[in-house]
Amino acid sequence: MLVSMLLNPPTVSAQKQVYPSQPVRLVITHAAGGTTDMAARLIQPYFQKYLGVPVVIENMVGAGGNIARSFVFKQPADGYTLLVSQQPSMSAGQIVTGAKFEVLKFTHVFNVAGKNYDCVAVAKDTPFKTIEDLKKASQGQPLTSAGTGVGSNAYILAMLLKARAGVNFTYVPFNSGTEAALAVAGAQTQMGTGALDSYWPLHEQGRLRILAVSGPQRDESHPQIPTIAELGYPNIVLDQMTGVFAPPELPNDRIDILVAAFRKAFADKDYQAAAAKAKQTLQPLGPAEFQKASRQIFETIQELAPVLKPDKRGR
């Protein structure tokens, strides 16, 4: 007991009264440089400024983000460990890959970024111009479509196209968005799905053609590309949002402190400028709205679950 007194002076008792009094960890589901990481790193200095304690970013890479999610899910709800994660991949982690956490039980603290759309692209030499063309061409023999692993956003979008637009194809999962995009550019597969960011540079260079984006509206940075909904499939919408979560049942007073810091950060001109330069679309949502949006995404994925569960036999 004496040792503990020596090593842990008053912090233990103090933390119960004043929050925050120690550094706050932001656990990121993916590696440095990814979209989740960038959203966190952009806001970190401002969040830290208005929260008043150091905010430390920790990339906990593994199992498509599920290691980080499961880890934070089990942490004490003291507001010192927060998770930065994306929807719908988080829902897919629970529903499709069966990871051990419950999305809706997480405390939804604040949504940071959003409107990070996925897209459908086709190889340069193919004649396809619309989703309809894809559907027609796929009736005789299935097409091949590149994407990333089971449960990823690229996979979810592909399955939506399959189930709701009736495009018939064999899904070919690659290890990264880059590899999938290159496969479409190299005409290894006829079409592909995935993050707009992965495909856009190749579209711009004329190495492949992006047909449509998955969002409810056109992408702000690339308004020339139509949405899948505009092409006649209003029930194919896949929106991505990146938000901050806390372990279940974080006390309300602590939620309020965190939300206030986020709101101030969002009001900061410097943060807005930095986000604009990095072409990040901000989507500030308080706990209630965030929870609602998150539940919507979760329910969509749940509804899709029978389609999304991979076929055990493969092929």
């Binding site: 040792v3 503990s4 842990n8 430390v56 920790e58």
Partner: peptide
């Protein structure tokens, strides 16, 4: 390097 080095079970146990 911002690495969180292992803190040890003993201390966290003593901390309660």
């Amino acid at each position: 390097f911002h690495v969180r080095l292992p803190e040890g079970l003993l201390w966290s146990y003593l901390k309660g």
